[in-house]
Amino acid sequence: MHPAFYPDGPRLLADIGGTNARFALERAPGQLSAVRTLACDAYPRFEDAVSAYLASVGIAVQHAAIAIANPVDGDAVRMTNHHWAFSTAGAAHELGLETLLVVNDFTALAMSLPGLMPADLVKVGGGATRPGAAIGLVGAGTGLGVSGLVPNGAGGWTPLQSEGGHVAFSPADEREVAVLRHCWERYSHVSAERLVSGPGLALIREALAARQGLVFETLEPAGIVARGLAGDDPLCLETLECFAGMLGTVAANLAVTLGARGGIYIGGGVVPRLGEWFARSPFRARFEHKGRFSDFTAAIPTLLITAPCPALLGAGRMLGDHLGDHLGERAGAHALATAPAPMPVTREREHAHC
């Protein structure tokens, strides 16, 4: 057995969003295998999806970390953008797990950032990271995730457990004011997530069509992206441009809120699908358009995460910290601080710093 392999066997890691659940086994720190993606809608319960994955790999595990697109506060977990709801203790018992650590997905993603390599990132625009400064994280998928890392004063980092995607949407021009007015006809509160997300693409397109008096067919987000990038559908292209500008505002607001001179990282499933077009989009110009703080944001780099499983790696690090092995750091990464009290369930074992 390789000396770095976990002596009690592989660990189960999962990254669960509103649409898909990605699972993997971690046999040693940062070494993932059997990575598989399951559609959430294919399983009535969270426990059913986990059981199906474990049956498919044919391996029993003792310890698991679940990064989930949801606030995590207490034993009860109820997803915001999906119908799954479960008790952490009950799920651990049913699945036969000694440890089940449930954490916010963007907190886990934030924990992976200092370990990402240059090949895992694409820089959009200018700016340079300032070592030891706060780092921001934002990502659009089924919802809008927000997190970050704050230096802890001891050479490590403290991740933020944030629900910043639910701040009120902030329009930056007349077109976005019109989009907001359209949304107000349906929603009493319009969050940033309502528009800066995969489902938000459809809502933006609907609002733009209403503003122009256009008759349009309903499209799924993937169709909007495909038609917009093809360049032969002006409404879809305008939708992508509007989305990118809105994301730029969200990212800039996060940058000035955190003082994120260490960079703003972009995760989530939507932006990677925009490909090279995203670098030419209104995103970076909007990010730098911050009034008296334009020079401040212009100096901050924006970095698109292209690593295939970063949230899984972050969840693995958090599980390693929880279990006390401190082995979850990727080679060459900066030391990370222990995460702030996620909601673990541990049976038949005591851990000194849990």
Rank of each mutant, 00 (worst) to 15 (best):
H166D: 12
V122W: 02
G148V: 05
H189C: 05
S191V: 00
V122L: 12
G148P: 06
G165T: 04
Y187V: 01
V190M: 10
Y187C: 07
V146S: 12
A134R: 07
E176H: 09
A128P: 00
V190S: 09
L137N: 08
C183Y: 00
A140Y: 07
G125W: 12
G132M: 04
K123F: 00
G141F: 13
P171L: 09
Q161Y: 06
G143V: 09
V177S: 13
R186K: 14
A140D: 09
A172F: 12
W184Q: 15
G156P: 03
G143S: 14
Y187R: 15
R186W: 10
G136F: 08
D105M: 09
L121G: 07
A168C: 11
R181F: 04
D120E: 04
L109C: 02
G139N: 11
V190C: 08
M111K: 11
V122C: 10
T158C: 04
V122E: 15
F106Q: 12
A134E: 02
P159Y: 02
H182V: 01
L113G: 05
G155S: 03
E176M: 14
G148K: 02
A108V: 08
F106E: 04
V138T: 11
A133H: 07
G115D: 02
V177T: 13
T158I: 10
L116S: 10
N152C: 10
E185F: 00
A168I: 12
S191T: 14
G155P: 05
S191G: 13
R181H: 15
G141H: 10
A128Q: 14
A140H: 03
Y187A: 14
V150A: 03
V167R: 15
A154H: 10
G165N: 10
A178D: 15
A108G: 13
S147N: 06
L149A: 01
F106K: 08
G156I: 01
G141A: 13
E185S: 14
T107F: 06
G164W: 09
R181Y: 04
A134L: 13
A108R: 10
L149Y: 00
A168K: 08
G126K: 05
F106R: 01
R130W: 03
I135F: 11
C183N: 13
R175Y: 00
E185G: 15
P114C: 10
A119E: 15
P159T: 03
H182G: 02
E174M: 05
C183M: 15
R186A: 14
L180T: 04
L160N: 04
T107W: 01
E193Q: 07
E193F: 05
D173H: 06
G153H: 13
A154L: 02
G156F: 04
L113P: 02
E163G: 14
C183S: 14
F106T: 15
P118H: 12
A172D: 08
G143W: 09
S188V: 08
I135C: 06
F169E: 09
H166I: 00
G127W: 07
L116I: 12
H189Q: 13
A178K: 15
A172H: 10
V146Y: 01
I135G: 05
N152H: 05
D173C: 08
P131T: 03
G145W: 10
N152F: 06
G155Q: 00
G165M: 05
P131N: 04
W157T: 01
T158R: 11
V190P: 03
V190T: 05
P114S: 08
E185W: 00
S188A: 13
G156D: 03
R175A: 11
V138L: 11
F169M: 05
A119I: 03
A108H: 14
D105L: 06
R175I: 14
A119N: 07
